[in-house]
Structures are given as structure tokens and as C-alpha cells.
Amino acid sequence: MRIVKYYDNDGWARFSKIRDSDPDDMAEFGIPVETVDISSLLDDCKKEIHNALAENGIMCYNDIVSKQNSVTSILVSAIRRRIVNAFKEVK
């Protein structure tokens, strides 16, 4: 068995296990191998991101340009923790 990546009809990258002798285009019919579910990840951190932007005085495009490191830090901080926790839950 081998793992093959393919894209579903909605454009999501997926993985599945198929037989070594199967062609790659059989991936959608293989055994699904999925990463963690992140469907609600962004919904969960909207308020945290909003409040952090406000607390850092990021209110307009010029603020984003002048405070790029702060914006990046805010986004990474809010999202990374949730992704790590999602993986811990399925460990």
C-alpha cells in the first residue's frame, strides 16, 4: 500500500492509501488518510484576532503596512495553538 495525494471536487487536498499496483488516479477510491479537522479553527479565533488587532492599534491598511510583524505574530499566535491542540486531541 502507498499513500497518494489528490484534490477532491471542491479543491481540497486529500490523501488516500491505494495498492502499490493501482495508478495514482485511483486515489479518490482508496482508503482515506486525513489530517486533523480544522473546519472550525478560524471561527474559534475570530474574536482573539480582532481584539489583538485593536489592542495593537491596527485599524487600517497603513497600520498593517507599518506593523507587519505585529500582524503576522497575531495571526500565527492565534492559529498555531489551535492547530497544535487539534493534533494533540487525535494523538
Score class of each variant (00 low, 15 high):
His50Thr: 06
Arg14Ser: 01
Ser66Glu: 11
Val71Arg: 01
Ile3Lys: 10
Ser39Phe: 09
Ile74Leu: 01
Ser39Trp: 06
Ser77Thr: 14
Ile79His: 00
Val76Asp: 08
Arg81Asp: 07
Arg81Val: 06
Lys5Ile: 05
Ile64Phe: 08
Pro23Val: 05
Met26Lys: 13
Arg14Ala: 00
Lys91His: 04
Lys46Thr: 09
Arg14Glu: 00
Arg80Tyr: 07
Val65Thr: 08
Cys60Met: 12
Asp22Ile: 03
Gly57Ala: 09
Asn85Cys: 05
Ile64His: 03
Arg82Ile: 01
Ile38Gln: 06
Ala54Tyr: 14
Val76Asn: 09
Asp20Glu: 11
Trp12Tyr: 15
Arg82Phe: 06
Ser73Met: 01
Ile64Gly: 03
Glu89Asn: 15
Phe87Asp: 02
Ser16Glu: 05
Asn69Arg: 15
Asp63Cys: 03
Ile3Gln: 06
Gly11Tyr: 12
Val71Asn: 00
Met26Leu: 08
Thr35Lys: 01
Val76Phe: 06
Trp12Ile: 15
Arg81Ser: 07
Glu48Phe: 07
Ser40Ala: 11
Glu34Ala: 06
Ser16His: 02
Pro23Trp: 00
Ala27Val: 01
Gln68Arg: 15
Asp43Ala: 15
Ile79Pro: 00
Val4His: 00
Arg81Tyr: 09
Asp20Thr: 11
Asp8Trp: 03
Ala27Ser: 09
Asp22Glu: 10
Lys67Gly: 06
Ile3Leu: 09
Met26Gly: 00
Leu42Met: 12
Phe15Ile: 06
Ile58Gln: 07
His50Ile: 03
Glu28Ser: 12
Ser70Tyr: 10
Lys46Val: 13
Lys88Met: 14
Val90His: 08
Asp24Val: 05
Asp8Gly: 07
Gln68Pro: 06
